[in-house]
Amino acid sequence: TIQEVESIDLSVFMQRISSNEIIFLLSFIGFILFIKQHKSVILALPMLLLGFLALKGGLRFTIYAVPIMALGFGFLCIKFLEYLEKIKIQDIKDIRFFGSLLIIIFLFIVLFIFFYLIQKNFDSYDFLGYFAFLLILFFFIFMALKFLYKKNLKLMRVFLIIAILMISLSSALRHIYNYKAPTVFTQNEAILLTKLKELASREDYVVTWWDYGYPIRYYSDVKTLVDGGKHLGKDNFFPSFVLSKDQRSAANMARLSVEYTEKSFYKPYNDLLDAMMRDYNQSNVDLFLNSLSKENFKINTPKTRDIYLYLPSRMVSIFSTVASFSFVDLETGELNKPFTFSTSYILGENN
């Protein structure tokens, strides 16, 4: 239910470590060569394996492999430069040969990208962007060959390193440019929560999803059940239940979860739900949760504070995930009753 810990496919795995699949493969080859030449690099293997755990452990693990694979790519580039410096281009015919080869490769790649973008219903600006990038890239490669012919190795290195940087960083820069994550709160939400600070006591609670836990404390100076540091399944169960069940059940669970959370500061509980069931003489979790919807359910714990709910409209996009934490079967861990929640937007208005 949390994107960062879901298993990811091989393509995303390679993109998140080395920006694209080709660079990943080159980096891996470079790392193998690095180990072969410098045995001490074996010490980096545990970090690399931790990064590779992302295939099962989720997206967040990829970051561990990034610097190790970058070292492999850097080593491969150095070896490539050393190999080029040993090549002896005898006359202008060799330059023309390599130049012609570059032009053929360039045209082939341009055609490939063109047909690929047609499949994706591309924007003409996308094609022009790719075309300009390739044009500049091949210019630097061609200049590197020219200076190699003139035995000017210093300038050859400069142009080739610029070309390598363009190849290796372009995908990463494109990802960064397109990765426009919104702020946690809009200005209006921040204003609203600042007003809540004037209404609520700092001992009151706001029940909301864990994403909003820390910032709500900042703006409203109130308490929350979950936050960025406290969001295990058993913690997220309570706000999920309150936000997605019927009103009576939600109100009763909000009161119980808040009061028992406060009690736990003085009398630690291993599990809040177990503590509630014990105090209300219930042994079956389903019967206990169903009883919260009954009119005759009486809360024995006295009210000590007010409780507010925070569910902004932007949260609807993740509401199915939020609800799933309390729709799970607590005996088996299976999601037997999937929560379906659909949103729609006005497309037009007539009269």
Rank of each mutant, 00 (worst) to 15 (best):
S291L: 12
L169E: 09
Y266P: 02
H175A: 07
R174L: 07
A200Q: 00
L243P: 02
R278Q: 14
K303D: 07
L243Y: 01
F185K: 12
N178Q: 13
V258D: 01
P182G: 09
L169H: 08
V184D: 10
I191Y: 14
L292M: 08
L287Y: 02
Y219W: 08
D279E: 01
V222P: 09
D279L: 03
W209N: 13
F185H: 05
I216G: 11
N236P: 13
L273P: 10
V258A: 07
K234G: 02
K234Y: 15
F238W: 02
L256T: 06
I299W: 05
P182S: 06
N188I: 11
A190P: 08
Y219A: 00
T301K: 12
A200G: 01
V222A: 04
N281M: 02
R202M: 13
V206Y: 01
F241L: 13
A163Q: 05
L193S: 00
T194A: 12
T224L: 02
P268F: 09
P239D: 05
D221K: 11
H231M: 10
S201T: 10
N296L: 06
K294Y: 09
T186W: 01
V206C: 03
F241E: 15
F185P: 13
L225H: 00
L243A: 11
L165C: 10
I161H: 04
L196Y: 08
K298A: 15
K180L: 06
N252P: 04
N281W: 08
A172I: 04
I161V: 05
L292W: 04
Y219I: 01
P215A: 11
Y269T: 03
R174G: 13
R174Y: 14
D204H: 02
V206W: 02
L273H: 04
R255Q: 10
A275P: 05
Y266A: 07
S249N: 08
R255L: 04
M166P: 03
S264T: 12
D221P: 15
G233C: 13
A172D: 08
T186F: 03
H175W: 13
E259L: 06
P215H: 08
P268H: 04
D271M: 06
D211K: 04
K303W: 04
F237W: 06
V206R: 02
S201D: 07
R248D: 05
L173Q: 03
T208Q: 09
D246Q: 13
M166E: 04
V184H: 10
L292F: 01
S283D: 15
W209F: 06
V258Y: 00
D246P: 01
R278N: 14
W210K: 14
N284K: 05
I176V: 07
K197A: 09
K263R: 05
Y280M: 00
S257D: 01
Y280S: 01
Y218R: 12
I167E: 11
F238S: 07
P215S: 00
D227G: 06
L292H: 04
V226M: 07
N236L: 15
K230N: 14
